[in-house]
Simulated assay, not measured.
Amino acid sequence: MTAPDFDSLLAAAAGRRFAFIVGWPVSHSRSPLLHGFWLKERRIDGCYGRLAVEPGGAALRATFDFIRRTPQARGCNLTLPHKIDALELLDVVTPAASRIGAVNTVVKRADGTLEGRNTDGFGFVEALRAGAPAWQPAAAPAVVLGAGGAARAVIAALVDAGVPELRLVNRTRQAAIDLGVRFTPDDGRTLVVDDWSRRAAALAGAGLLVNTTSLGMDGQPALDLALEALPTAAVVNDVVYVPLRTDLLRRAQARGNPTVDGLDMLLHQGRPGFAAWFGGSEPAVTPALRTAVAGDLGA
């Protein structure tokens, strides 16, 4: 195991309170730009950095021990591949994060223990509310493509929002079935698992389509999905934000569908963590913030 570079984090913080993003790789993360914007906007003497942490429990455990023993450390965000591994290494995990089965935000509590939270579902719903205010969760079925970590948070959020029917479609059917078993509502609402070969047919009558797969991301294959069966009033959301306007979003927009890109989910999911680490109320996602992060993405 290569030890994480804690000394660089401490040097950058220079005695200030700090949080950071943990991943492997992590150099692509825009979280430092996001939280740095809010720190500057609120004139808070704090720091938000990034830390490359190898996969496997040993390096992640060492990182959590570093947070516990360092007075200025307030917590961290987690990205791939650590969101699931963290569950067994933290002192406390909120019921929401436990239900989702993944942690993306770690907060050091007053007694020095670490609490794992998941704010991805919150960020997803807030992004929809901001980008597609006319969307009514209870009005029509929702289709979710993918069965990874992002899908877990999205599905849980849609169940809680009152979607009458969820249709899960994944390239590996068993993974979608496993999520279906985990998240099937207990109030009579329907959760359906469709084969990947039926992904276009699954769009009929839907009010929301969410792509949580990596298909369409820079460096990945395009998402091959015919949209003819999707009502033009349905909202199309892609959690991918590199590129900001994926091929799916461009095609949906061209046929008149309201669209929501992945950037707003990233921005909104950061709000609760920032407030927990640096105090005060949750910061706002403003046009200036979005412009700053989008500009860094080259959009």
Rank of each mutant, 00 (worst) to 15 (best):
L89D: 00
F124C: 01
A59M: 02
L87K: 11
P137G: 02
K108S: 04
P137A: 10
R61S: 10
A142E: 01
K108C: 02
G56N: 00
I155G: 14
R167L: 08
G112E: 03
R50W: 07
A127K: 01
L60M: 04
V154S: 06
V93R: 08
I67M: 13
L87T: 10
T119S: 10
V93N: 08
A134S: 14
L80T: 07
G146V: 09
P71I: 01
R68C: 00
A157W: 04
D85P: 11
L78A: 08
T79M: 03
D65M: 12
G49F: 10
R74E: 08
G56A: 03
P141F: 07
R129S: 13
E126R: 15
N104Q: 02
V154R: 02
P141W: 06
A97H: 06
L114R: 01
F64Q: 12
G146C: 05
Y48P: 08
G116R: 11
P81C: 05
R68V: 05
V93P: 04
V53G: 02
R129E: 13
P133R: 04
L145Q: 01
A86Q: 09
G162P: 07
A96D: 15
A73Y: 00
V163C: 11
V154A: 07
I67G: 09
A58N: 13
L51A: 00
V107A: 14
T105Y: 01
D65E: 15
L168D: 06
R129D: 07
A97T: 00
A147Y: 03
R61G: 09
